[in-house]
Design a protein around this nucleic acid. Structure first.
Lengths: 230, 230
DNA sequence: ACAAAAGTGTTAGGCCTACACCCATGA
DNA sequence: TCATGGGTGTAGGCCTAACACTTTTGT
């Protein structure tokens, strides 16, 4: 039994971060889960997470977890809720600061973690450890809210993408269908996309146009009071 | 020196909740601050807050703080961010789960706390303890965001209110001016207000109509996919 | 040949915005 | 009597939503 050498006058909860890592494969939103190798809930699937170190912020901790699983350094990571139910962990009082991350599946490389990790579609999520199903539900709800007003969808797509891909993404996240022409018009009118390539004159109608997100333009528009809406 | 009797194998941060309590006096948004009676930052103004007990959730903890200051039991309290900078407290590592609360000033009674508490307008906030200025800024930003899409403004007004009062509230929070007629039309068209009283036939034009928020109607509309927007 | 994917434009209706006058009250 | 606060309606522009056909390619 290891010595308990960190002592306080008052009881302290343990603090972890968990990270809901979203990806998009062109059709569905995916979430990265890891299979737990230790008790409690050994063998169950769970969100990547771990204990907060005393010299790192929650965001640094979440990024560390993210990097261990995907080798990605620079992606969107955002805290969305802290879960504090008294009995969420059978070992001791543990509160967790939950984050979500948006990654491009193409850039993800296998984690260096020994633990088995796998991408799951939102409609085939297995039974999860702890209260991770609740965390995941809140993360997807937050993702829905955010994509309506911030151009975060582009973090899930390759840098260069087609309009149908973008529409699929919005439809997958918001669980609705858009009219194709209206979606085109709306997106193009926003002015935050630039054409990625000159379209070859002989391009067949079957080959979609390619776009990239124009972050500079978005920033400029936003400063002028422009508000994205979907 | 009190005995340090709570021991763990790994270091644990202390966990507090802080509560940004918003009120509205008909003209300005107000925030309740308390003057610290002990070090660190003794004498400085701070957000009401305190340590998380091991048998309460963060929301329960925040509500407890709120009740100590205002005697209010049933108000909107919502977590909005957890602040985890490593050096936010000079005593030890402390993370704080920040909440905001919306209260009706008319219902607030003096706290039972010995500490001095006072309402401040947002434009006359004094220098705050810890990172509480940052917390407050994020709270007001969140309030702005929320009021655009959720009918939370009514929690700050008396149950029965007039249209100019409601408009003042929106203008105070969003820091904009609305055209009076457009605001009336928009609000009434939403269908979430009911007239609070039959308007006396002899009512002078100088006496404004009174309304109350119709929560049932809002719920119904929301389920039909209606989305509030401002 | 047929199904599936992608490009493209128009119209009608609703919503938003801007705007002016009247009445009552209190100073 | 003058300033202030409050109630009320309309017209134009913009955005949204609904909608069909053509081309190309793969099967």
């Amino acid at each position: 039994m290891e010595e308990k050498k960190y002592c306080y006058r008052y009881p302290h909860p343990a603090v972890t971060t968990d990270c809901v890592i979203f990806g998009f494969d062109g059709v569905s939103i995916k979430v990265l889960l890891v299979q737990r190798g230790i008790d409690p809930h050994k063998g169950k699937w769970a969100l990547p997470g771990g204990f907060l170190k005393m010299d790192e912020t929650a965001e640094e901790c979440a990024r560390r977890e993210l990097c261990e699983e995907t080798r990605l350094q620079s992606t969107t990571v955002e805290q969305f809720h802290t879960f504090t139910s008294v009995d969420r962990d059978p070992r001791e009082r543990v509160i967790t600061i939950a984050h979500y991350a948006l990654v491009r599946l193409s850039e993800v490389r296998g984690g260096d973690d020994a633990a088995k990790a796998e991408w799951f579609s939102l409609d085939e999520i297995p039974c999860l450890a702890f209260d991770h199903d609740r965390i995941l539900r809140m993360a997807t709800a937050r993702l829905k809210e955010r994509i309506c007003f911030e151009p975060i969808g582009f973090e899930l797509l390759p840098e260069i993408f087609t309009m149908p891909e973008l529409q699929n993404l919005y439809e997958a996240i918001l669980e609705v269908k858009f009219d194709r022409r209206n979606f085109y018009n709306k997106m193009l009118k926003l002015g935050i996309l630039t054409e990625a390539e000159e379209r070859p004159k002989n391009a067949s109608r079957r080959i979609p146009c390619k776009y990239r997100f124009n972050a500079a333009k978005y920033k400029e528009l936003k400063q002028k009071g422009f508000r994205l809406e979907f």
